[in-house]
Design a protein around this nucleic acid. Structure first.
Lengths: 161, 161
DNA sequence: ATCAAATACATGTATATACATGTATTAAAA
DNA sequence: TTTTAATACATGTATATACATGTATTTGAT
């Protein structure tokens, strides 16, 4: 029998020890920031087993999306979740670990093209498995709730000018 | 007349140039991370005018919450949105700018107690004004939508063990 | 064809995160 | 009481963000 021993609900009020929010919109801002930190932290823990940071994992996933095609640095950067990431430097570290390979583009000599190595692919697959298991095990919202959440987050970023 | 010249909707698919999501839950994970980055970036831009980073602003707000009482470093740290922040070092920078003052606790000599200076209070007030104006101007969701969003984010972090 | 602007990437600096370790002080155990 | 463990903070290291600047290459205008 699978017995649920306890349910851990960390309310925002508890997490940041404050309940003085201007309004629900202001609270939502803090809630988004805190939830992102929480998500990053629990995934980083899994990735650490493989010596990868969240950002390095992101770059590997992006490269996998085009594999076996190569990608230039600019293309990788444009797909990053955090747009100001210093992609050349993240690639430096992946290259040191021999998870990716740099080469010069023949089309445009300014470009550096990046390729996943076999080792990069296999570490990515292990990480994906771990991270997916974590998500399935920890995040208990269903697809319908997630869809509402996605719609609301997109509404947050919808700006009129 | 207040004419709305254009509406800027940055969908997640456009932002990270991918539409291959395992399911809505997985997409929600990326959406939370991207929205947090977006929020941080637009606020950081306002704070930069005052030479403050997002984290320094967070520390000042926390100190204001107890003002005129002092707070020890541990108490500040426990209220941070990002729990792994290196609060002593953030305080180093605030102290250099004379926005806070460090002193020794008389009760427990291990503790360092932090006080907002007058200059710290006034810079915080200016920042709050700027940030609130930004939020009101840019975020177009209403309080009811924000309340649903808050409930969903709390559901995301609700884990069974 | 030549020069100026734009592009792609690398690199440098300040600040932050994440985490390990060091130091002084306090609390607790033998 | 003495020793040990825990606590509070400071500091050190690797990696990341945010942003400025440098260099080589390409594009575009004259």
């Amino acid at each position: 029998m699978n017995v649920c021993t306890y349910i851990c609900i960390v309310k925002l009020e508890t997490a940041i020890q404050s309940n003085k929010f201007k309004n629900e919109v202001h609270k939502a801002g803090l809630n988004i920031l805190y939830t992102a930190w929480w998500l990053k932290t629990i995934t980083a823990k899994e990735l650490k087993e493989y010596g990868l940071t969240h950002e390095q994992y992101n770059v590997l996933r992006i490269l996998k999306g085009k594999y076996p095609d190569q990608m230039c640095v600019r293309d990788v950067a444009s797909r990053m979740i955090e747009k100001n990431s210093n992609v050349p430097r993240i690639i430096d570290r992946l290259e040191l670990k021999k998870l990716v390979k740099r080469s010069n583009s023949s089309i445009d000599k300014r470009e550096t093209v990046i390729t996943l190595t076999q080792s990069g692919i296999s570490i990515l697959e292990s990480c994906n498995k771990k991270v997916n298991e974590l998500m399935d095990g920890i995040i208990s919202i269903n697809n319908q709730e997630a869809a509402s959440l996605n719609a609301l987050l997109e509404r947050v970023r919808e700006t009129e000018k």
